[in-house]
């Protein structure tokens, strides 16, 4: 038989034990604590200037050829969206063939072969928005991978292991930005990786290199002298879908609320 005194004692002890947060019993790893304070660490970031983008699509073409994405397949690691907002409040957006061939007509693609012609006088605002992988600080695509085939490198780039990927497609569903797709030849998840082979050699990504107008920039945003890092710190920039808490590292100048 349990006495009343013991019952109260054990109950209080039990409640106290439950109240201890999980973090209080985590063993602190000194090396990880040190690394988290290290500002010398490389962190790749990207800056897009939507005013400078003219929708030529040379970046998409360069990306497809550089990264061996099948040229005529309707998938791409990066793409350019066109937004046309009309005076009566309608929003039109299209990206024919991921803008691989640019935008050479003022007709907006509505899908199923339908085109919408918008008169010049009806346009309130119209602009182009290049999109690519945001290399999130908290990448949901990595979190959901059941086999550890997609991962975040030390310098913040999210890569896919083609030998390890089982093609379940969880990551494609998890990405709020829709940047992932199945590679038609490998059958594994595919995404923009900031041209990891180029940035590791000190080169710029293929899209940045191809852009004649300087609408795309890449840099190590932890470096105080880096141009991209400077602009992000000093100027007004925004990110896509901030409310998802993914901490995207592709920053935009001149975004509009209609851009999703």
């Amino acid at each position: 038989m349990i006495t009343r005194r013991d019952f109260i004692k054990y109950s209080l002890q039990g409640i106290a034990a439950i109240a201890v947060p999980l973090t209080a019993i985590e063993i602190i790893n000194p090396s990880r604590l040190f690394a988290s304070k290290d500002t010398k660490k490389v962190r790749w970031g990207f800056l897009v200037d939507t005013q400078k983008c003219v929708g030529c699509g040379l970046c998409v073409r360069a990306c497809k050829l550089e990264n061996e994405t099948p040229y005529d397949a309707n998938v791409s690691r990066t793409w350019v969206e066109r937004y046309v907002l009309t005076k009566d409040g309608k929003v039109f957006a299209d990206s024919p063939k991921a803008a691989r061939d640019g935008f050479i007509t003022d007709k907006i693609e509505l899908g199923h072969g339908k085109l919408e012609e918008i008169k010049k006088d009806d346009i309130e605002k119209a602009f182009f928005v290049p999109k690519l992988c945001n290399q999130c600080e908290n990448p949901p695509c990595v979190q959901v991978c059941p086999v550890g085939a997609t991962y975040q490198t030390d310098d913040g780039v999210v890569l896919v292991d083609r030998k390890w990927c089982i093609g379940c497609g969880y990551c494609i569903m998890a990405c709020p930005y829709g940047v992932r797709f199945f590679h038609p030849a490998y059958g594994t998840a595919e995404k923009c990786n900031f041209c990891y082979h180029r940035i590791k050699k000190g080169m710029k990504t293929a899209c940045v290199e191809a852009c004649p107008f300087g609408a795309r920039m890449i840099g190590n945003i932890n470096d105080p002298a880096d141009e991209v890092g400077k602009i992000i710190r000093i100027e007004r920039v925004s990110v896509l879908k901030d409310e998802f808490g993914t901490k995207p590292q592709v920053y935009y100048r001149g975004l509009s609320k209609e851009v999703r």
Partner: peptide
């Protein structure tokens, strides 16, 4: 690896596959 279990559970040697990918655009 570095990023912990949630984001850094992977085959480290796969980074080399992407580092050694062929450069086509030479600028």
């Amino acid at each position: 690896h570095e990023k912990g279990y949630m984001y850094g559970w992977y085959n480290k040697s796969d980074e080399n596959y992407w580092k050694e990918f062929k450069v086509k655009y030479r600028s």
